[in-house]
Structures are given as C-alpha cells and as structure tokens.
Computed example of a mutant assay.
Amino acid sequence: MFCKHDLERLLTVDAAPAVSIFLPTHIAGRDIRQDVIRLRNLLTKAQDQLCEKHGLRRPDAEAFLKPASDLLEQNEFWRHMDRGLAIFLAKGVSAIHRVPVELPEEVVVNSRFTLRPLLPLLADDGAFMILAVTAGRARLFCATRHGIAEEDAGLPQGVAEIHAETNYENNLHSAPPARHADRTDRGGVSMVKTHNFGEDPEELRKAHLIEYLGRVADRVRGHLKPFRGPLVLVADEEIQGHLRKDAHLQGMLEDGVVTNPDALEIDDLHRRSYAVVRPMFESTRRTAVERFNALYGDRNMAERTTTRAEDVMVAAREGRVGVLLVAEKDKVWGHFREDYHRAFPLHHETDGAIDLVEEAATETLLRGGEVHVVTKAELPSGASTAAILRF
C-alpha cells in the first residue's frame, strides 16, 4: 500500500541524485521472467544516467543501485507481485512498493523523486481497502479500480488459534499428567479467557469467534492508521454483524459484500468490492468537476479557479488549492524560481526541469487538498490541470 505518509517521506528526501524506477509487472505465469529482464534494463539506464549526468564512477553507481539489483536474484520476491513495481533510491534511502496499478516502464534520475505515476493511488477517488474475513483466515487488500494486492498486515489466521490457546490455558490448570499429555508449546499464552470443557459448545464457538474478530480488528486498525480511504468488508452475515457492532474500523462502508470470501476468485473479490465503492468514487469525482465548471463559468466567481499549470503549481505550494483536477497522463515541464516565487513553463523537458502538474498534485495532497485524476475531455480546452482555490 502506497499512502500519503509514503509520499511525505519520499518528498522530504533532499539527497541528489534520486532514482525513481517504475515498471509494469505480472502477478503470475511465465511473464514474470520478463519483469526481471525489464528491471535489469532499467537499472542499466539508471546506471548510465548516474555516470553521465551526475558524475558517479561505474562502481559507485553499481553500489548506489544495489538494493534494486539485489532483487534480480530473489526468486521469492517475484512470486508475490502485483500490477506495478515502484523503486526509489537515494543516499540512505531505499523504498520498494508493489502497487495495484499498471505503471509505465520508466527510470528518472533527478534532484528529487518522481511520483507522478503513483498519483492514481493517492487521488481522492483512487485507492480503497478490502477486508476479507472467514472463521478460517483474514486477509487485507489494497485496491484501485485497476487491480488488487494483498497487504502484509500480520492478521490472525483463524479461530483455530484461539481454540489452541484456550486448550493450552485449560491444560495449565489441569492435573500435571493430563497437562503433560496434551500440552503444545506455542511460545506463549494469549489473553483468551479460560473456558471449562463442560461449557456449551455453541457459546464457546461464539466466544472464540468474537475474540478472533477482535484481534483482527486491532491489527487492521493499526495497519490502516495512515490510510484515509474507504474499507469494504467481505464476510458472511454473522462475521459482518460482529465486526460492524464491535470493531468501529475507520472508513468501513455501511454496505459490504455479504458472502464467504474464500469462495471467490481474487478477480471476483475485486470486482464485487469495487462495485461497492464505485458509486461513491464516481460521485466524488463528478461533484468536483461540476463544482469547478460552475465556478469557472461564473464571471463573479471565476477568480476562484485557475487552469494555467504554472499558476496552479504556485497556488498549491502556498496551500491555496482546495480541489485539483489533473489529466491522467499529461505533463507540463517548467522551472520554479524561488527568488521570483513564480513557475515558468517550458516547451519540452530540459535538465533540472520539473513536471508542474506533478508538483501541484503532491503539494495539494500534502496540504490537505483534494486531487482527482480525470480525462482530458473533462478539463477546459487545452488544460492539463484545473484548480479550485481556497482563497
């Protein structure tokens, strides 16, 4: 999961050169081998740029890229891929993110990291989470409309863990011979309440299920602290009821997918979960576009809007952009002059140039504004970005 706190951390890196590598990847199959070759080729390009543009010696460039080149020999790493891979390298910094969006095949070596390809994950109608729970296991996924990736959230893996801990606790209080015969070494004892073996089996089952779901909720709550998007719960009716009543998970939508998630293929899990968030995402995006158009078309309110990328970028740096619309793939190259506090657009990319659209988007996100990735047709003619200003 690539979230706003990852964006903030990467943007604070001030150690040129900074290498950003993006590539599309395959989840399974023989095409995984092509992903390894693709990364190898991108690393060759990165090494050439480090040497030619930034003056590194070849051995130093190889050492700089080592965290990424090490991945080429890690077969296990490539068995757990998603639709895209993003790698960020700088002095003292190595960040590797599998993401559920298809990324362009690109390497950028500059004075700071490039984050534009990841904007669909950070937009207000971009990413959502899926919590799939059965009595046998719990899984957490990060998803977009494009794809889905399982998170390494360390969730409890079923009520069986609670059963085993309860039996262990009961054995501790039984006679020594019985304890010796049945004891299993689990490396510790949980906080599960001890139950008598004569207790009603159905009550015991419910107590274990509730304890298990409470632990799942605690882990999910901790894992999602930096995430501000919606959460879709996929579970049967009983588990839905317990989690909705007791868990109070941040962002959990009232509507979920009421079914056994283990009976769904991963594509079906994604499709049915996205169907829950899609109306909300589309409504949020449509409302933002309609609001901009209403202000833009009103002579008395038009000054609350701007579509010039250089003006949008400066306004974003000043914290004045409340809502930002950006065309999905457009780039506007330019320079920012601190002494003039102005941005100047360029006709094409040059050394030291920045993408004014990316700069505006990241600054808006960091200052609590909304960012929506839209089609070119939804923006005024010729514009790559459009903003509603707070003041």
Rank of each mutant, 00 (worst) to 15 (best):
Phe227Asp: 00
Arg228Ala: 04
Arg228His: 02
Gly229Trp: 01
Pro230Lys: 04
Pro230Asn: 07
Pro230Gly: 02
Leu231Gln: 03
Leu231Lys: 03
Leu233Gln: 04
Leu233Phe: 06
Val234Met: 06
Val234Phe: 07
Ala235Val: 02
Ala235His: 04
Ala235Ile: 06
Ala235Tyr: 02
Asp236Arg: 03
Glu237Arg: 13
Glu237Ala: 14
Glu237Val: 08
Glu237Asp: 10
Glu238Ser: 06
Glu238His: 11
Ile239Glu: 03
Ile239Asn: 01
Ile239His: 01
Gln240Arg: 12
Gly241Phe: 12
His242Val: 15
His242Ile: 15
His242Tyr: 13
Leu243Gln: 00
Leu243Lys: 01
Leu243Asp: 00
Lys245Ala: 15
Asp246Ile: 09
Ala247Cys: 13
His248Phe: 14
His248Val: 08
His248Thr: 11
His248Cys: 11
Leu249Tyr: 10
Gly251Glu: 12
Gly251Pro: 11
Gly251Cys: 10
Met252Thr: 14
Met252Lys: 09
Met252His: 14
Leu253Trp: 02
Glu254Cys: 05
Glu254Val: 09
Val257His: 05
Val258Leu: 12
Thr259Leu: 09
Thr259Gln: 07
Thr259Phe: 10
Pro261Glu: 06
Pro261Cys: 09
Pro261Ile: 11
Asp262Ile: 03
Asp262Tyr: 00
Asp262Trp: 01
Leu264Trp: 01
Leu264Ser: 11
Glu265Cys: 13
Glu265Val: 15
Glu265Thr: 15
Glu265His: 15
Ile266Ser: 13
Asp267Trp: 08
Asp268Leu: 14
Asp268Asn: 13
Asp268Thr: 14
His270Asn: 13
His270Leu: 12
His270Lys: 13
Arg272Gly: 01
Arg272Met: 13
Ser273Tyr: 02
Ser273Glu: 02
Ser273Asn: 07
Tyr274Ala: 11
Ala275Thr: 10
Ala275His: 09
Ala275Gly: 08
Val276His: 02
Val276Arg: 04
Arg278Pro: 07
Arg278Ser: 14
Arg278Glu: 15
Pro279Glu: 10
Met280Arg: 12
Met280Gln: 10
Phe281Ser: 06
Glu282Ser: 09
Glu282Val: 11
Ser283Phe: 10
Ser283Lys: 13
Thr284Ser: 11
Thr284Cys: 06
Thr284Asp: 11
Arg285Val: 05
Arg285Phe: 06
Thr287Gly: 04
Thr287Ser: 10
Thr287Pro: 01
Ala288Ser: 08
Val289Arg: 00
Val289Glu: 03
Val289Asp: 01
Val289Asn: 04
Glu290Lys: 07
Arg291Lys: 05
Phe292Asp: 02
Phe292Arg: 00
Phe292Gly: 00
Phe292Ile: 05
